[in-house]
């Protein structure tokens, strides 16, 4: 699938950067404002999909040497592990906790274990969505 469209490629480079940043922002802001693991993950995934659509699969795979299959498995592993950890502290499965800490640069910051859990979910979403699109386009060859 070779696409030779200079304008699309140029615009895509800029837009994908914006989309990825926005996705990260959504992921981290999810605790207090709209966003979170799912949405962040989906936006990140759509950024990658756009990249694959405007360039071809080989080029992007060279530029971003990530296995999206492994990424999705890693995501499931992270969320499962973070769910299991409380069990070893005598808490029910999936208990989340949070606390407020004074960090050098950020000032008073809330740190919550739910972020780890959500990170797992986000990785799963990105991995699965990109993987589905990639599989389908690869399957034709």
């Amino acid at each position: 699938m070779k696409i030779n469209d200079v304008i699309l490629k140029t615009v895509a480079k800029a837009v994908v950067l914006v989309i990825l940043t926005f996705g990260l922002y959504l992921f981290f802001s999810g605790h207090h404002t709209p966003g979170g693991g799912f949405i962040g993950g989906l936006v990140l995934a759509s950024g990658f999909v756009l990249l694959f659509l405007s360039y071809d699969v080989e080029t992007v795979s060279e530029g971003i040497p990530i296995s999206f299959k492994k990424m999705s498995a890693l995501g499931v592993l992270i969320s499962m592990t973070s769910a299991l950890v409380p069990v070893f502290f005598g808490q029910p499965f999936l208990s989340q906790s949070f606390g407020y800490f004074d960090l050098p640069i950020f000032g008073k910051t809330e740190l919550a274990t739910v972020t780890i859990f959500e990170a797992g979910i986000a990785l799963t979403v990105v991995g699965v969505v990109v993987n589905i699109i990639l599989s389908i386009s690869e399957g034709t060859k």
Binding site: G30, H31, T33, G35, G36, A112, V114
Partner: peptide, 10 residues
């Protein structure tokens, strides 16, 4: 968390 929906999910 202040986002209720997200608190329910997470």
């Amino acid at each position: 968390g202040r986002n209720i929906v997200n608190a329910i999910l997470g």
